[in-house]
Computed example of a mutant assay.
Amino acid sequence: MDAADRLSLVAAAATSLGPIEDPSTFAAKVRDRAVELYLMSRERGAVGRALEQLDECRTYVATVLGGKVEHHPLPDGGELRRGLVRLKVAASKYNRDGVEEIRTELLSTDEGAALWARIRGLVGHRVLVYAQTEEKDSRKVKTMRHVEDLGEDRELARGDAA
């Protein structure tokens, strides 16, 4: 880490704390916060991993049509659950009808639960989808990593009224 990166990290840590009168207490708290921020940003940290995933995503515009919880039974009797989101996308050779399904992270994770809650409130909205395609068990799997709300899809509302 060079001097500029170090200074940026210390500045971020200090501003996140707000005012602290005692200089020795302030320095100790800045040190602790700077260490937390640094560890979060590393590749193996939660924030670092999320940033790496976003770097690998492709983005596209779609409309959220709805979704459901997908259940995957486990041999031990448990189950894994993911959100399965239905999107209206541009028609293509892969989605001739212009409808695509994409999965969220596991709903048992903070990231998966937060994204699923957000998606449920975006039905009928145009969104910018951040999707990562990975190979698992010799097949390609697309996972939604993030979504940005672009507002209500007025064309969809007119099409439903017709």
Rank of each mutant, 00 (worst) to 15 (best):
G78E: 03
E100Y: 05
A162F: 05
E105R: 14
E111R: 09
L128N: 10
D55T: 11
E155N: 10
D149E: 09
L74C: 06
H72S: 02
L156F: 00
D110P: 09
D55N: 08
Y94I: 09
R33L: 14
H72E: 08
R6D: 08
F26C: 02
L80I: 15
D5L: 04
V123P: 03
A4P: 14
K93A: 11
A4C: 05
I119L: 09
A11P: 05
E111V: 01
E36A: 14
R44H: 07
T15H: 08
D22C: 03
A46C: 05
R154P: 09
D22R: 13
G98P: 06
G121E: 03
Y60C: 01
K88P: 04
G78P: 06
R158L: 02
R44P: 13
V30E: 08
S16H: 00
L17T: 08
S41K: 11
K68G: 11
T59N: 07
Y38V: 01
L37N: 13
E100R: 11
V85D: 00
S41M: 03
R58T: 14
D76W: 06
K88S: 15
D76V: 01
T59C: 06
K68A: 13
V30R: 08
T109K: 00
A117L: 10
G98E: 15
P23C: 04
Y38W: 05
S92L: 10
N95A: 15
W116C: 10
A4L: 14
V141N: 15
K140M: 13
G66H: 13
M144K: 07
K142T: 15
R86M: 13
L80Q: 14
L54E: 00
L37I: 03
K29P: 13
L107V: 04
M1K: 08
E43Y: 02
V30A: 12
L74E: 03
A117M: 03
R120L: 06
L51M: 07
A12E: 05
G67R: 01
R103V: 07
S92H: 07
R118I: 14
E152G: 12
E56P: 11
R33A: 00
R103C: 07
R145N: 06
Y60A: 10
N95I: 15
E100C: 13
R96W: 02
E135K: 14
K140F: 09
N95R: 06
G48I: 03
V129E: 08
D76P: 01
R33V: 02
I119M: 10
P23D: 06
R58W: 02
S108Y: 13
P19E: 14
R81G: 12
V127L: 11
L156M: 05
K29N: 06
R58S: 04
Y38C: 07
G48H: 03
K68C: 15
V35A: 08
A11M: 11
R44N: 09
A50V: 12
H125N: 02
V35C: 12
R158V: 01
R58Q: 05
L150H: 09
A131E: 12
Y94N: 03
T15I: 15
V10K: 10
A13V: 09
Q53D: 10
K93W: 14
E134V: 02
L87R: 14
K136D: 06
A27N: 13
E43S: 04
V61H: 11
P75Y: 15
Q53S: 02
L65W: 05
Q53H: 11
N95M: 15
K142P: 03
H72P: 00
L106K: 04
E100L: 08
V85E: 02
L150T: 12
V141G: 00
D32A: 12
